[in-house]
């Protein structure tokens, strides 16, 4: 299983676009918002956690279709399915690889982008914390969506339509935790909810995603 993780990481580093693209997209979203709503600090600072969360979510979405699509097209998914590796394990590893290449860079870059949005420094830890807890759920839910649409020719748009509604609870609790924490309110409850969604997704969705993959390979 670790071999699969290493292979996927190596692929995304060498193929290019894996690491940088999501981050660049995140940056562009963050830069576009002030152009849209105006440069006043009083407007930007309160909405910064929400923008960062929506931006992270969209950046995550961008690379979802790569999770299984390439392996499906070149036949490795067939071979993986016949290999002595549980499909559920392969799904988890693929989601982890996706998180390491997409989610983790977003978490680390969040304070920089937060500063761009005039976010007060007290909020940095909160946005990083909520993203760190929440983005694994985004990767796992996304892997489920990617497993559903892997056999389709133009699955990308459909994938967004399927996955975005599933992202709503994570987004709500994550952004809520970050903005409450930033404003100095009690943020334990939403933080725990984000963690709960992540753990629940990691525990249950691999089975659903593996089932979807098997159906698609039939």
């Amino acid at each position: 299983m670790i071999a699969l993780l290493i292979r996927d990481l190596r692929l995304s580093v060498r193929a290019g676009g894996g690491f940088g693209l999501g981050l660049a997209f995140f940056l562009i979203v963050t830069v576009l918002v002030p152009f849209g709503v105006g440069p006043e600090e009083a407007i930007l600072a309160p909405i910064a956690p929400g923008i960062l969360w929506v931006g992270a979510l969209l950046a995550c979405l961008l690379s979802l279709d790569r999770i299984f699509q390439l392996d499906y097209e070149d036949g490795s998914l067939d071979l993986l399915a016949t290999a002595p590796l549980p499909m559920e394990g392969a799904v988890v590893m693929k989601a982890v690889a996706h998180w390491l290449t997409t989610g983790l860079p977003l978490v680390l870059a969040a304070p920089v982008f937060g500063a761009l949005l005039n976010m007060p420094p007290e909020g940095f830890l909160w946005i990083m914390g909520s993203l760190a807890l929440g983005t694994p759920a985004l990767s796992m839910i996304g892997a489920f969506g990617a497993a559903l649409t892997v056999g389709l020719k133009r699955g990308g748009l459909l994938l967004s339509l399927l996955v975005l509604p599933l992202y709503i609870p994570t987004l709500i609790f994550g952004a809520e935790a970050a903005s409450r924490g930033m404003a100095g309110f009690e943020a334990g409850t939403p933080m725990l909810m984000v963690a709960g969604i992540t753990l629940g997704s990691l525990a249950l969705l691999p089975f659903a995603a593996a089932a979807a993959l098997r159906i698609n390979l039939r």
Binding site: I168, I172, F173, M193, A208
Partner: peptide, 15 residues
Amino acid sequence: VGSVFALLSRYAVNF
């Protein structure tokens, strides 16, 4: 899966 997340959204939205 959607049902689980729809229910979750309901509580999230309430919150």
